[in-house]
């Protein structure tokens, strides 16, 4: 996984709450067996609407999505994270993420930055007053920044320490866990024999 330290890019205001994973990418787009190419399904239903924010050319290079609360609810599909990444997003800012989506983001290297609802409101207003404006998401200092001068927005975001460390270092989870192989083996040796198995010797 690539290291994530800080990112500055065009902010995209998505003024919606409860953006579930079926909105992020409908199931019909989940049939690929690769991790790439899912950008075609990103917000598929909404992209037919000319007024949808991603259809505005000013956001064509958008890489920081600013969404309402309960982003990523519903299905466990990591394809939702891949679709955002394949499209070009590096970070999503929301007041509340669904657990599985947030976990998947951390694994795949998409930054899920949780901020106060008021910060999202201010970012939305800022981005709509200045379409194409950039947002900086700094993982080292856990801050989001946008704008300049008296209207400048700067606030902290929440992310758990462990995920932050893994993202900063670009670490592979499986590699870390395999380092604890002896612990796993000794746990396995103690498992009760009546626990079910799917294959019998």
């Amino acid at each position: 996984m690539e290291k994530f330290t800080t990112h500055t890019g065009v902010g995209v205001p998505l003024r919606r709450s409860n953006v579930d994973t079926d909105q992020i990418i409908p199931a019909v787009y989940l049939k690929r067996v690769t991790r790439t190419g899912f950008e075609d399904g990103l917000f598929a239903a909404w992209r037919n609407d000319p007024s949808f924010v991603l259809n505005n050319p000013v956001y064509a290079a958008g890489s920081v999505l600013v969404a309402g609360p309960d982003f990523g609810t519903g299905s466990s599909r990591e394809h939702a994270v891949w679709a955002l990444q394949n499209y070009g997003f590096k970070a999503v800012i929301s007041p509340r993420f669904a657990d599985i989506f947030r976990g998947n983001s951390g694994k795949a290297g998409l930054l899920a930055a949780q901020v106060d609802e008021k910060v999202v409101q201010r970012l939305w207003d800022h981005l709509e007053e200045h379409p194409g404006a950039e947002i900086t998401v700094d993982l080292e200092t856990r801050t989001v920044r946008a704008g300049e001068g008296v209207d400048a927005i700067e606030d902290s975001f929440d992310i758990d320490d462990y995920t932050r460390w893994r993202l900063l270092e670009g670490l592979d989870d499986i590699g870390i866990t395999l380092g604890h192989d002896a612990d796993i083996a000794s746990f396995e040796a103690e498992r009760p024999r009546w626990k079910p198995v799917t294959q019998h010797a």
Partner: peptide
Amino acid sequence: AFGIGTSEVEHVLATQTLMQA
């Protein structure tokens, strides 16, 4: 019992464990 993403599916396949807060 809970749902997991594909990176975690790979993690469980490889290690039979998951890192969970």
